[in-house]
Design a protein around this nucleic acid. Structure first.
Lengths: 216, 216
DNA sequence: GTACATTTCAAACAAGTGTTTTAATTTAGT
DNA sequence: ACTAAATTAAAACACTTGTTTGAAATGTAC
């Protein structure tokens, strides 16, 4: 028989509700009601709502981040000059493979990421730097190699501009998909959005220094 | 004597707390406590928390949006070909003039905008289209004129990518400033961030169509 | 099958929220 | 100065939140 444990039923319901309504606006009662388990089960199995949120994210991060780290290392060790588009494209495959973790896993994870950054402002940024700082450093190094003319501080700002693009786009994903479908008769999956994002981000990050941006 | 009314005391306290903690995470008790007025004053003067939020935003929007509309119209009527950077730069002056509305008005408003889009997802987008749709249309038209090779749907996506950049950057403004100060010894005001944003956004929006972005 | 540990369940708890109520106070008009 | 309207004040209300409790149920090992 295909028995899904109480923990998994909670995780599945939680990630769906978290992705579409955000962490703060999702109550434990909504989650346990959708998962068809008792309210107290969350605190029994996960300790607290905060730890439940972390568990939901970890289910994806524990798959994604080592995968990314490996790709980054590989690209760093290859001696050829990597252009920015190639560096950014490294994300595509590992992200799409999250669909194996869970049905609609890629979209789910990216929406969760968006929610995580917009809902609980400082927390997720700290969590990332703390747990995956080494991996992030490799990525920043790759970007710096691809953009040798940009000072580190400029790259810092532009990478955070890019983070904003990704996070906001993913958090608003549902609304944007609906508008695009209504106004342009086009139905893009999350994969389509990713492929639209890469050239946009690459052009923004690699944009030449201007007088006005240097003056401040 | 310089008497500030109860309404103004509430608005001043509210916008500060909203900007730094978000709308959902700011309680009326925090606001009335900081404003040194009675809790019931909010509902008496503004009706509800929701209407208070709108009032806080309107104080800036009623100044900014007509100003932007005027600039857009002027640029549309001038027959010369406008490049994208010029179109985006139109925002600079009207935004910086918000400092006249209030001390640190520009930073405050942009942070509020960021909070508004990330906190109450769908709501602010609807509000904008409903109240300032005409003005936004003029802006989109200007962008389309500056990027005649891009299909409308592509411009739609890229403008929302850009909205994400702005909104996220402004919502995270405080954290980013702190990191930049610590890691790069650089202290940029909000004006510096704006001047850093423009070339990044212009490059992203105007980036050439690629095979991978068209395929999906 | 008895004993023990694990898990489920309904109920209550404590704390926080926005809003309403009703009375006291201040302000303004005549 | 008196009256009526506008404002302030303290308290309570109704509701939701995450969490805890203690008893019932279930599963597991010997």
């Amino acid at each position: 028989m295909n028995k899904t444990t109480t923990q998994d039923k909670i995780l599945d319901a939680a990630e769906q509700l978290f992705a579409s309504s955000g962490f703060a606006d999702t109550s434990l009662r909504q989650i346990t009601s959708m998962a068809q388990v008792n309210l107290a089960a969350v605190n029994y199995h996960f300790g607290s709502k905060k730890e439940l949120i972390q568990s939901v994210l970890q289910r994806y991060l524990s798959v994604l981040m080592p995968r990314l780290d490996q790709e980054f290392s590989q690209l760093l060790s290859s001696q050829k000059q990597n252009d920015l588009t190639a560096v950014l494209s490294v994300f595509i495959k590992p992200l799409l493979e999250l669909n194996k973790v869970q049905h609609h896993g890629t979209r789910m994870f990216l929406q969760l990421l968006g929610r995580g950054y917009t809902d609980v402002q400082g927390h997720l940024r700290w969590f990332f730097n703390h747990h995956y700082g080494r991996t992030l450093d490799k990525f920043v190094l790759l970007v710096q190699q691809a953009c040798p003319d940009l000072p580190a501080s400029e790259i810092f700002w532009r990478l955070h501009f890019s983070l904003g693009t990704v996070v906001f786009t993913m958090a608003s994903n549902q609304a944007l998909q609906e508008i695009a479908a209504a106004d342009f008769n086009e139905n893009v999956e999350i994969e389509g959005v990713i492929h639209r994002l890469i050239p946009y981000l690459a052009a923004g990050i690699a944009s030449p220094l201007t007088l006005s941006s240097q003056a401040h």
